[in-house]
Design a protein around this nucleic acid. Structure first.
Lengths: 146, 146
DNA sequence: TATTGTTATACTCTATAACTATA
DNA sequence: TATAGTTATAGAGTATAACAATA
C-alpha cells in the first residue's frame, strides 16, 4: 500500500481545455527534448530549421511572423543557429535591408538526421492513442488554432 | 484579391501533435490573459489560487509538486500573491519548517470573481467545438497527460 | 513614410546549488 | 540524514522602444 501519499484536489482545473492543453504540452515537450538531446534541438529550434528548409531565402521578419514572435526575438535565435553553423544569413539582391535565411549543408544534415528522431518521438507520444484517436486529436486541435 | 501575401510552407510541423498542441495552447492562453486582465491573473496564478483553495493548508513543496515545478520556483509565486494580499503563509503547528498556504478573504473573493470569467473564457474557446467534440478533446488530452 | 534588422533593456518562468532550520 | 523554505544565480523566451539603413 502507499504510505499515505496525499492526493491533491484540483478543483475546476481538469475541466479546462487550457489546463489540459498545458499538461499535455509539457509532457510532449519533455519527451521531445529528451529525444532530441543528442542534436541539441528544442521544439522551437527544430521548428525554425523546418521553416527555413521549407521556405529557403525567407527573411527574419517573415520567419518571426510564421513563428508568432517579434522580429527582435528572431535575431538571437538566428544568431545561435548561425554560430552553430546550421543557418546562414545571405544578402538579398532585391532588398538590401533583408537577410535571406538558408540552411547550411551542416544544417540540412542536422535536420535530416533529426527528422527520424522526431518521428520516433511522435510515435512514442501517439502510443497512448489509436490511429483514429490521433487523427481526431489533430483535427480538434486544428479547430482551436487553424 | 489578396495582394500576393505569401503563404509560408510548414513542412512536417502540422502533422506533429506537439506543434498543434503549442499553437492551440498559445491561442487559449492569450484568450485567458485577455479575459482575466482585469484581475491581473495569468493561467498559472489562477491555477495556484484554485489549488490552494482546494487544498487549504498545503505547503509550498506539495504545491510545487502539484504544479510540476521546483519548490524554489514556488517561492517567488507565493511572494507575489502574498504581496497582493491574496495568499497567506501561516505557521504549521506540526512542522515548524513548513508554511501552510491559505487564501485570504481577499484571495477568496478574487477567485470567486475570476471563476465566472474563466468559465466565459472556456465557453469562448469551446465555441469552435460541439459539446461532443469538447468532451472528446478533454478525454484525448487526458490520455496524453493523465 | 514604412520596413528590416539590430541593440538595449526588462520581465516571466524556470532550474541548480548551497544555505538554515528543522525533522 | 532528509526535508521545507529560501537565496543567489543563470538561462530560455519573450516583448517594447529606439536606431540606422534602405525601401
Amino acid at each position: 500500500m502507499n504510505p499515505a501519499k496525499p492526493t491533491i484536489a484540483r478543483g475546476l482545473l481538469p475541466e479546462l481545455i487550457g489546463y489540459r492543453l498545458r499538461r499535455a504540452q509539457v509532457r510532449v515537450f519533455n519527451d521531445f527534448l529528451a529525444s532530441l538531446a543528442p542534436f541539441e534541438l528544442t521544439p522551437g529550434l527544430f521548428g525554425v530549421l523546418v521553416l527555413i528548409d521549407s521556405n529557403p531565402g525567407l527573411n527574419q521578419s517573415r520567419l518571426g511572423n510564421a513563428m508568432g514572435v517579434d522580429r527582435s526575438t528572431v535575431v538571437a535565435v538566428i544568431d545561435r543557429l548561425q554560430a552553430r553553423g546550421l543557418v546562414a544569413r545571405k544578402p538579398s539582391t532585391s532588398d538590401r535591408r533583408a537577410h535571406r535565411l538558408t540552411l547550411t549543408p551542416k544544417g540540412k544534415s542536422a535536420l535530416e538526421a533529426a527528422v527520424p528522431e522526431v518521428r520516433a518521438h511522435e510515435a512514442r507520444i501517439a502510443e497512448a492513442l489509436t490511429t483514429e484517436e490521433r487523427a481526431a486529436l489533430l483535427q480538434l486541435l486544428e479547430k482551436l488554432a487553424p
